[in-house]
Design a protein around this nucleic acid. Structure first.
Lengths: 340, 340
DNA sequence: CCCCTTTGTTTAATCGCTTGACTTGCAATG
DNA sequence: CATTGCAAGTCAAGCGATTAAACAAAGGGG
C-alpha cells in the first residue's frame, strides 16, 4: 500500500480514526491492549503521520529556525558550529526539527524571519550572535517565540541567552592584576554589544582595582575577530604603549594573533608579555605557548538556548534573559609581570 | 485581526477562496485587475499562507533536508560550510527551505532519513559526504528524492554529484611528473570512496607514465584528514622512503601538515621536497610556501546539488550521476625535482 | 441569431490529522 | 435498585489551503 494514512491503520485495527491518533499522541485514555495493537500495525506498515495534516490540526510545526549571520565561511568559525550542534542536540531529543537560515539581504528585506512564524513554518526562532547593526531584530520585541543567542540589545525586552561576557572580562582582569600587571593592553571587537560589554567591564574592573584608564589602553580588533586582525592590533598596541606587560584579546583568535606578533618581534610570552583570550577554542590548547583564556561552553549554550525556547512554547516561562557562567583556564601564556 | 487566512482575504476582495489561491500561485487565468486587488489586500494584512494547509493540499513541503556527518566540530571544516552555503543559496532562491540534520546514531537507527520523506516533512534529501561504512544509504536505491553529495557508492544506482577526484589525481600526478619527480609519496585518506578513487587514480596515472608502483608509495592519512595526521604521515613516508622528492596529500590539510613536518626537519619546500594537496581551502593560499593544489569549487557543488534535486522534483531529470571539473592551481610549494 | 470558444471565476471535494463533546458499558455507591 | 462515576472509545467539526470540474459572460464565425 502506498503511503498508508491514519485511516488505513484504523481500519486494520477495527478502531476509530481518533483512537489511532490518541495512541500516537500518547493519550492515557487508551487501554494498553488497543495501544499495542495499534502500535504494531503502525510498525508493520512503517506508518508516519503526515506532518502537514498534523501541523494544520494542531497549529504547531514542531520545528524551529536557527538563523546565522551572513558571513563568508561562516562555519569556518568553530563558534557557530558548536552552538548549532548544541541546538540540534536538544531540538532533536525534544522532537523538534531544525531549519537553517542565513540572515542574508533577501532574508532580512523580505522579513522572512516574520513570515516563518506567520506561515507556521516554525514555532520559534533562535538568532545566533547578530551584530550591532542588526536592529531589525527589534521586530521581535514582545514576540515570545524568539531568543537571541549570545547577543543582546541593551534597553529592549528582547529575549536573550548568552555567556557572561562581563564576568569573563572581570575574571581575566583579575587574573592579570593578580600576576602583578599594571599596564594592560586590550584588543577589543566592537561590532557586537557583547564585545562592547567585554571591553567596558574589563576597563571598569581594572579601574576599580586602582589602575587608571590610561593604564588600560585598547585598540579596535576588527570586524572578523580573526588572528590576522589580532596580529595587526598587537603591533599597534605595542607601538603606542611599549610599556604594557600584558595583552588581553577579545577572543582567542585575536589573542593567538597577538602571540604571533610577539613571536615575530622576539618578545617572549609570557616572560616579557602575558597574553590571554576568551572562548577556549581548541586551538587555544595547542598554541605555543598554550593560551590562558576564559572558557565559554558554546555547545551548552546552544543546548540551553533551545531548551528555553521550548520552555516558552510550553508556557513554562514567559521570557528569557539568561547569562551562563564562565571559567578561567590558566595555561602557559600568562605569567608574573616583568619587573621594570 | 489575528493571523488572517485566505478566507479573510477573499471576503475583503469579494472574490472566492480559490481566486485568492490562484493569484497566490500565479495562475495565468486570473485577470490583472483581480490579481492586483488581491495582492494589495495580501500586502495590507501581511498575509502569509499557512504552510501546513498548503503542504497538505499540494502534497509537497517545499523543503529539503541537508544531512551532514556526525563529526565533532563538523563545521570547523570549511568543507561542509561551503557546500551547505551553496545549497542554501539555490534552495532559497527556488523557494525551498533547508532543514539541517546530523547523521548521528539516533538519526540512523530510527531511519529518520526515511521518516522525513514519509511524513512529507521534506521533499528530498541531500547527504553530504558520508564515509565507507554508511551503507544504510542503500535504503535510497531507487528513491529519486535523494542525492549523495561529493560521495558515491560504486556498483549502486544511487544518485550522486561530486567533484572529479579521479581527474584531480591525474592533474596532480601529471603536474609532479612534468616537474621531473620520479618517486612520489602519497598521503591518502581511505575512509571514503572518493579518497580511495583519488589514491588509485593517482597511482594508475603515475604507472601509465612509466613509474612503477613502488615509485609511488602511499601511507594512510587517517580518518580526520587533518593537519596533525598529515604531519605524522609525512614523517612515516620520509622515514620509509627517504628518496622521494614529492609528497601528494589527499587534501590540503594533510598537505599542510606534511609541509609542517618538512619545516620541522629543515627540509626545504620546494627546493628539496615538493608538496601539493587537493581542495584549495583558503589556508592553502596563505601557507608558507603557498600550496599548489587542485581546486574544488565546493560552493558551486552545493548549488548544483540542490539544483539537480529540484530538477528531479520537477521531473526534468530522472536521475543524477554527475561529476564537476577541477582545476590545477600552481603555487610555490612545488618545483623541479632535485637532481640526485 | 445561434452555437461554440475563450476567459475569468466559483463550487465543492479533498488533503490527513487533532480534539472537545458525547456515548457506552460496567463497577461502585448510597 | 436506581444513580453515579469512570474508563475506553467514537463522532464530527474543524484546521487552511489546492485543484478538478462546472459555470457564466463575452466575443466570433457562419
Amino acid at each position: 500500500m502506498a503511503k498508508p494514512t491514519i485511516k488505513d491503520i484504523a481500519k486494520e485495527c477495527n478502531v476509530s480514526l481518533s483512537t489511532v491518533s490518541l495512541v500516537l499522541n500518547n493519550n492515557p485514555r487508551i487501554s494498553e491492549k488497543t495501544r499495542t495493537k495499534v502500535l504494531e500495525a503502525v510498525a508493520r506498515h512503517g506508518y508516519q503521520p503526515n506532518v502537514h495534516a498534523r501541523g494544520l490540526a494542531s497549529r504547531s510545526s514542531q520545528a524551529i529556525s536557527v538563523v546565522v549571520p551572513n558571513v563568508n565561511h561562516i562555519f569556518a568559525d568553530i563558534y557557530f558550529g558548536e552552538i548549532v550542534s548544541g541546538i540540534y542536540e536538544r531540538a532533536s531529543d525534544q522532537g523538534y526539527k531544525v531549519l537553517l537560515d542565513i540572515a542574508n539581504k533577501q532574508f532580512i528585506q523580505t522579513k522572512e524571519y516574520l513570515s516563518l512564524l506567520k506561515s507556521k513554518r516554525v514555532d520559534g526562532l533562535l538568532f545566533i550572535a547578530a551584530s550591532l547593526k542588526d536592529d531589525y531584530l527589534k521586530d521581535f520585541v514582545g514576540e515570545p517565540c524568539f531568543i537571541s543567542v549570545n547577543h543582546y540589545f541593551p534597553d529592549t525586552e528582547l529575549n536573550y541567552i548568552a555567556v557572561d561576557y562581563e564576568d569573563s572580562a572581570r575574571q581575566a582582569a583579575n587574573h592579570l592584576m593578580e600576576l602583578g600587571h599594571k599596564k594592560i593592553g586590550l584588543i577589543a571587537g566592537t561590532n557586537t554589544y557583547t564585545g562592547l560589554a567585554l571591553r567596558d567591564a574589563f576597563i571598569k574592573e581594572c579601574v576599580s582595582h586602582g589602575l587608571s584608564e590610561s593604564d588600560v589602553p585598547w585598540v579596535e580588533g576588527g570586524d572578523r575577530w580573526s588572528q590576522e586582525e589580532g596580529y595587526e592590533a598587537a603591533g599597534k598596541l605595542l607601538k603606542d604603549h611599549p610599556d604594557i606587560t600584558a595583552v588581553m584579546g577579545g577572543n582567542d583568535r585575536l589573542a593567538i594573533g597577538a602571540m604571533a606578533y610577539a613571536a615575530s618581534q622576539d618578545i617572549d610570552v609570557p616572560g616579557q608579555l602575558s597574553v590571554m583570550g576568551v572562548d577556549d577554542i581548541p586551538a587555544a590548547r595547542f598554541s605555543n605557548p598554550s593560551l590562558t583564556t576564559v572558557q565559554h561552553r558554546l555547545y551548552d549554550l546552544g543546548v540551553l538556548a533551545c531548551e528555553r525556547l521550548i520552555n516558552i512554547f510550553k508556557g513554562e516561562i514567559g521570557q528569557c534573559h539568561e547569562v551562563l557562567p564562565v571559567d578561567l583556564v590558566v595555561r602557559e601564556s600568562t605569567g608574573p609581570a616583568k619587573t621594570a
